[in-house]
Simulated assay, not measured.
Amino acid sequence: MKLLRLLQWLLGTLLGLGLIATTVAVIITPLIFGLLWAPPRPNVEVEQPLPTAQTATSPASTSPAPVKHGRVTYAEGLRVRDRPDREAEALGSIDFEEVVTILERSGDGEWVKVRTQNDLEGWVLAFGIQEQ
């Protein structure tokens, strides 16, 4: 009789601990894995459109366009590419908070051509640049 009660106690304890461990794992696992992936890409809208390639080089313009600067706001920095395309060759990168000169904007508005302080010139995704 004592052996039966001991087995019942042991089985109940193990099942109880297993249930507690499973509940804790179900609650904590999404929290842990949620921290492993990068956050979704921010969708930033530009309040004032930057000049496009066509307007920046317009021959009818008599006065030079004002120099515009921007700051990298994307925490991971931005890749500088040789043309406005995600498959284009990467020329280098720009760090977070780095100030760049804005040269022009692609026709679709998704890309901005910039020049860094180290004279690296190329295209970056516009969502990562905040005009100053």
Rank of each mutant, 00 (worst) to 15 (best):
Val124Lys: 03
Ala56Gln: 11
Gly107Gln: 10
Gln117Ser: 10
Pro84Trp: 00
Gly107Val: 10
Ala21Phe: 04
Thr62Glu: 10
Trp37His: 05
Val112His: 01
Pro66Ser: 13
Thr116Asp: 09
Arg41Asp: 15
Gly92Trp: 01
Glu87Lys: 07
Ile27Met: 09
Ile28Val: 14
Tyr74Ala: 05
Leu50Asn: 12
Thr73Gln: 12
Asn43Gly: 10
Thr57Asn: 05
Asp85Glu: 10
Pro42Gly: 13
Leu91Glu: 09
Gln130His: 00
Thr57Leu: 09
Asn43Gln: 13
Leu78Ala: 01
Ser63Asn: 10
Leu50Gln: 11
Leu4Met: 06
Pro49Trp: 12
Val46Asn: 08
Arg71Asp: 11
Leu31Lys: 05
Leu19Ile: 10
Ala90Trp: 03
Leu17Trp: 13
Val80Asp: 01
Leu10Pro: 01
Gly18Phe: 05
Arg5Ala: 04
Ala65Arg: 13
Leu91Pro: 07
Leu4Phe: 09
Ala38Tyr: 12
Leu10Tyr: 14
Leu91Asp: 08
Leu31Asn: 12
Glu87Pro: 07
Leu10Ser: 04
Thr62Cys: 08
Ile28Phe: 03
Leu50Tyr: 03
His69Arg: 14
Pro66Glu: 11
Ile94Ser: 03
Ala56Met: 14
Asp95His: 13
Gly92Ala: 00
Asp85Gln: 09
Ser106Pro: 10
Ala56Pro: 01
Leu31Met: 13
Val124Ser: 00
Arg79Asn: 05
Leu6Ile: 06
Pro30Val: 04
Thr22Tyr: 04
Arg86Trp: 01
Ser58Asp: 15
Arg41Lys: 15
Phe127Asp: 11
Gln54Ser: 08
Asn43Lys: 11
Leu4Asp: 03
Pro30Asp: 08
Val100Asp: 05
Thr55Gln: 08
Thr22Asn: 06
Leu4Pro: 05
Val44His: 04
Pro64Asn: 11
Gly109Asn: 04
Gly34Met: 07
Leu4Glu: 10
Val114Cys: 00
Gly128Ile: 05
Asp119Tyr: 07
Gly107Leu: 06
Val124Met: 00
Gln117Arg: 05
Arg5Gly: 00
Gly92Pro: 06
Thr13Ser: 07
Phe127Ile: 15
Thr62Leu: 14
Leu31Pro: 07
Val99Tyr: 04
Leu120Glu: 08
Leu14Met: 02
Gly70Pro: 09
Leu19Arg: 10
Ser93Ile: 01
Glu87Arg: 12
Pro42Ser: 12
Val67Ala: 04
Glu87Thr: 15
Leu36Cys: 09
Leu31Cys: 08
Ala126Met: 12
Phe96Ile: 00
Thr55Lys: 13
Ala25Pro: 08
Asp119Glu: 14
Gly12Phe: 12
Arg86Phe: 02
Val124Ile: 01
Trp123His: 05
Glu45Ile: 15
Arg71Phe: 11
Arg5Val: 01
Leu17Asn: 04
Leu50Met: 12
Gly18Asp: 01
Ser63Cys: 11
Glu104Lys: 14
Ala21Ser: 08
Tyr74Arg: 06
Leu35Thr: 14
Gly107Met: 10
Lys113Gly: 02
Pro59Ile: 03
Ser61Gly: 07
Ile129Tyr: 00
Gln48Val: 12
Glu45Gln: 15
Thr62Asp: 11
Thr55Cys: 07
Gly128Asp: 06
Leu17Lys: 05
Ala53Asn: 12
Glu97Asp: 14
Arg105Asp: 04
Ile129Met: 06
Ala126Leu: 09
Ala75Lys: 15
Leu35Phe: 13
Arg83Val: 07
Gly34Phe: 05
Ala126Gly: 13
Leu17Thr: 01
Asn118Phe: 10
